[in-house]
């Protein structure tokens, strides 16, 4: 069972995701959750079927309040997909989003070790162990906010570039359309008729 805050006052919550059977079909998520509870500083462990779905996210928010969490680790998929999701989620519960860490036990474990369930479970544990170790040392960060220059550049004046430029300009934005050739039009301008409408290209 999860222990107490570590001596630096770190209180980590670990959320182990089944991802339906995507993870749980290979990894023993119960064992991973149990193991996470033994790690230094972990005060809460919750297992979810789909952590990224609303009920899963609500569990995180609830646990942050209930267990007074100051670090959150989600063991699920790649941070390239859901790190922004969970950062927003913890931020909504009042936690600095940089105090969130992800353990990738889907792309790095369940999907690539489908026939080695025990070894996959061990690897998932190791990944959670490292993620919690990193989480313990995370610090809150403040993002710098910079103004967006109110103009867009479109490189290439073929059909795609023309359409993108027109849409942006119609939406009220200043657009620079840069074309290498002496005229815009690109390949489309060299076509006679185009399918499926069989009408003129220009």
């Amino acid at each position: 069972m999860p222990g107490a805050a570590n001596r630096n006052g770190v209180r980590v919550g670990v959320f182990v995701c089944d991802c339906g059977l995507n993870i749980a079909g290979t990894v023993d998520c119960g064992a991973v959750a149990e193991y996470a509870g033994t790690l230094d500083g972990v005060v809460a462990v919750i297992r979810n079927k789909y952590t990224c779905a609303d009920p899963g996210q609500n569990e995180i928010k609830k646990a942050i309040v209930e267990h007074n969490l100051n670090r959150v680790v989600v063991a699920s998929c790649t941070p390239k997909i859901h790190e922004p999701t969970f950062r927003n989620c913890v931020a909504e519960a009042g936690m600095n989003p940089y105090l969130f860490e992800m353990a990738n036990i889907r792309e790095h474990v369940s999907w690539v070790h489908q026939n080695e369930k025990d070894a996959a479970t061990d690897k998932a544990k190791a990944i959670v162990r490292a993620a919690v170790a990193r989480a313990r040392l995370l610090e809150p960060q403040i993002e710098a906010e910079v103004a967006v220059e109110q103009a867009a550049l479109v490189i290439g004046g073929g059909i795609a570039g023309i359409q993108a430029a027109l849409d942006l300009a119609d939406a009220g934005h200043q657009v620079y359309l840069v074309e290498k050739e002496p005229s815009i039009g690109g390949i489309m301008a060299a076509l006679d008729k185009t399918y499926p409408t069989m009408d003129c290209s220009i």
Binding site: L166, Y176, E179
Partner: peptide
Amino acid sequence: MMDAGRHPRIELLSNSEVT
């Protein structure tokens, strides 16, 4: 094409390259 050429908010830089 014509629309892009005469749109008041599109500055067309033809015969040009991003360097």
